[in-house]
Amino acid sequence: MDPQFDYIFELFTLLIGLAVAEMLLGFSRILKLRARRRAGIDPAAMRVKVGWLVPILGLLVLIDLATFWSIIWTMRGVLDMRMATIFGVLVLIGGYYLVATLVFPDEPEMWPDFDAYFWQQKRWVFGGMLAINLAINLTGMALGASPEGAPQISPATHPVFVTSVLMVYLNFPAFAWLIFTRRARVSLALMLFIIATQILYALSSWTIAGLV
């Protein structure tokens, strides 16, 4: 690994670590809220309906953060220590941290229905994720980034992996659809689709040496 990349990657790791911590804190608040509601010790918690939209969104952001980390890792051979690089890392990862802070409400008791919170924040969250994912993928393509020692892959040798890659590219229109849809079932289906495609990609690349 380029020694210069170590400094950039440390900055990246710090920011993405904060984003992951923010997501885990959101899940922790929900679990504590459920505990207080079941114990009957918090009247405000008794009135809160969590639903599925916000927790699934939190899971989606966590998985996409892992994918985002892997893309940055493949760029370790083409990134160097320049001001433009540091600025780009701050914009992309800082933007993702900002997105992560919008997924869960800071004070769950103030939102009797988490679905209402989801509909207020979803355009910012999905719009930010779409913009950041497009930016990092286009940057990687422009710089010619690829995993070191990656094998030649074709549909004949790795059909499941190639299929998973094609399905991952469908995430971009899925994110765009999520920005504008107002239907809960459509939102859930699209989020689960993105999660499934990224898990399939991770599993199909597991046995291919040189890939992350």
Score class of each variant (00 low, 15 high):
154 S>K: 06
130 L>I: 09
132 I>M: 07
156 A>G: 11
184 A>K: 15
137 N>L: 11
174 A>N: 04
150 A>N: 09
197 T>V: 15
180 F>K: 10
130 L>E: 09
165 V>K: 11
156 A>E: 14
152 Q>A: 12
173 P>R: 11
184 A>E: 15
132 I>V: 12
117 Y>P: 05
140 G>I: 03
196 A>I: 06
132 I>H: 03
201 Y>V: 01
170 L>Q: 10
160 V>N: 06
173 P>L: 10
154 S>N: 07
121 Q>A: 08
139 T>E: 05
175 F>T: 04
166 L>Q: 11
117 Y>C: 09
182 R>P: 00
182 R>V: 01
188 L>S: 03
183 R>G: 01
174 A>S: 13
177 W>Y: 14
156 A>D: 11
162 V>L: 01
177 W>D: 03
175 F>P: 02
147 P>T: 02
121 Q>G: 05
124 W>P: 00
159 P>K: 01
127 G>P: 01
184 A>N: 08
118 F>E: 06
117 Y>T: 10
130 L>R: 12
193 F>L: 11
150 A>R: 13
168 V>L: 13
149 G>L: 06
156 A>Y: 03
171 N>C: 12
200 L>A: 15
177 W>A: 14
159 P>Y: 02
180 F>Y: 08
139 T>Q: 09
163 T>S: 14
150 A>S: 14
171 N>T: 15
152 Q>H: 09
200 L>S: 14
199 I>S: 01
142 A>R: 10
148 E>D: 08
168 V>T: 15
193 F>P: 02
133 N>F: 14
145 A>K: 09
160 V>C: 00
176 A>T: 09
171 N>S: 15
163 T>Q: 12
188 L>T: 00
165 V>F: 10
163 T>F: 05
126 F>I: 05
122 K>T: 04
166 L>P: 00
179 I>G: 02
165 V>I: 15
193 F>G: 05
137 N>E: 09
152 Q>M: 12
158 H>L: 00
197 T>D: 07
126 F>E: 04
140 G>T: 03
149 G>Y: 08
118 F>Q: 07
169 Y>C: 04
173 P>E: 10
142 A>W: 10
191 M>S: 08
202 A>H: 10
147 P>W: 12
187 S>K: 04
139 T>N: 08
174 A>K: 02
149 G>R: 06
157 T>F: 01
189 A>K: 02
166 L>D: 06
168 V>H: 11
146 S>T: 10
129 M>R: 04
122 K>Y: 00
167 M>G: 09
202 A>W: 11
175 F>K: 13
141 M>L: 15
136 I>G: 00
135 A>N: 07
192 L>G: 00
194 I>G: 02
184 A>M: 12
176 A>I: 07
122 K>Q: 13
184 A>W: 08
162 V>C: 08
166 L>Y: 13
142 A>Q: 07
127 G>R: 01
156 A>P: 00
134 L>E: 12
192 L>N: 01
199 I>T: 08
137 N>S: 13
128 G>N: 05
142 A>G: 02
188 L>Q: 06
173 P>T: 11
159 P>W: 04
148 E>Y: 06
172 F>G: 02
157 T>W: 01
190 L>W: 12
176 A>C: 01
172 F>W: 15
143 L>D: 02
126 F>H: 10
141 M>D: 14
155 P>I: 10
